[in-house]
């Protein structure tokens, strides 16, 4: 072993003996600095015979490279070990932070309503809204329910102490929005009208005096009962799933003619009544200044609360208005 190789071997031994980065860095001047043996040996080259200089020079360079390489390797080893120690000290149990999310929650009705709106927007509808307190004209008369009509009683209306008795009321359905829309917009009309509605139903597990409905109205040329059935079918398949079927049964609403209830199929093969629908009654169109000989349309409506109750199998509809965070934060 040449003296230069010996020099490198000694240096590498020192480097590998360094236990941490500080110790290693402290060795650098002694092993690779100006006063290091390899540096001094290079300086001394001139004192050698010319024929020895080349070999010696190469040997010195090789020794230096060996030392530098050992330095780099050891540095990487020690840095990695130091990082491991430092990171270990930072260890966190992430499960400690799983609980108690900071984000709030949209109300179940809002979530349901948004989903419904989005389906109908995709089908080419816009969303119309109206006041919750209405006059008899919008809630009844314009909808072909004259003052003496037996159907009025079935709406279980909550009246408001304004105007003549029974002239102003909390709307008992979202249908007044149909009238308001037809009064102010030219056909074609494709709207849905979600919103709060009111009836004199004492609150219990399945009833609330204030609840939510969504209503659809289409007025266009050549609209048929087949369009109504097809639209309900398309909506139901989009909202509930492609396997869900619909059927229409004749029914009666003063503001539609023909009128029907629509049912959706349940997995067990039975049918569930979802809402009411029908072709807009010519009298309703006339009441809004629309010529029923030119324009035809359909309307449909159903309860949003009931959908939420069905979807999440709520056993008490009052949870929707109790505002209990133990309920609200579930959705």
């Amino acid at each position: 072993m040449s003296s230069y190789e010996q020099l490198a071997t000694n240096a590498v031994a020192q480097i590998e003996g360094a236990v941490d980065l500080d110790t290693l860095e402290a060795l650098r001047p002694a092993l690779l600095g100006k006063k290091a043996p390899v540096s001094l040996a290079k300086k001394d080259l001139g004192s050698l015979e010319p024929d020895q200089r080349k070999d010696a020079g190469q040997a010195i360079n090789a020794a230096r490279q060996t030392i530098e390489s050992a330095f780099t390797t050891r540095h990487a080893e020690l840095a990695s070990a130091a990082r491991a120690v430092a990171l270990e000290a930072e260890r966190l149990d992430l499960t400690e932070f799983q609980a108690d999310p900071d984000a709030g929650h949209l109300h179940l009705i809002t979530q349901s309503r948004d989903r419904l709106e989005d389906v109908f927007i995709g089908m080419g509808y816009t969303v119309a809204e109206g006041p919750e307190v209405e006059t008899a004209w919008y809630n009844f008369e314009a909808l072909n329910i004259p003052e003496w009509h037996p159907a009025r009683g079935s709406f279980d209306t909550i009246f408001v102490n304004l105007g003549e008795p029974e002239e102003v009321m909390l709307r008992s359905h979202t249908s007044p929005v149909q009238i308001r829309t037809m009064e102010t917009q030219e056909p074609p009309i494709y709207i849905i009208a979600p919103g709060r509605t009111f009836r004199t139903d004492t609150a219990d597990a399945t009833h609330l005096p204030a609840f939510n409905q969504i209503e659809g109205l289409v007025i266009d040329k050549g609209i048929t009962m087949g369009d109504l059935a097809g639209t309900i079918d398309e909506f139901v398949r989009t909202f509930f799933g492609a396997e869900v079927k619909t059927r229409l049964r004749p029914s009666y609403f003063p503001f539609t003619e023909p009128s029907a209830e629509f049912d959706i199929s349940l997995p067990d093969g039975s049918w569930l009544e979802l809402g009411g629908c029908g072709m807009v009654h010519p009298n309703v169109l006339r009441n809004c200044g629309i010529d029923p000989e030119i324009w035809q349309g359909f309307a449909f409506g159903f309860g949003i609360d009931r959908l939420a109750v069905m979807r999440y199998r709520l056993d008490d509809i009052r949870e929707l208005v109790n505002n209990d965070v133990r309920f609200l934060r579930q959705f």
Partner: peptide, 24 residues
């Protein structure tokens, strides 16, 4: 006529709105 013919025997169609569905 529809009642006796059967509402479910009517062919189902979907009208296509010329309106672009949107929120205000």
């Amino acid at each position: 006529v529809g009642r006796m013919f059967g509402f479910d025997n009517i062919e189902r169609t979907v009208p296509r709105s010329e309106i672009i569905g949107h929120l205000t």
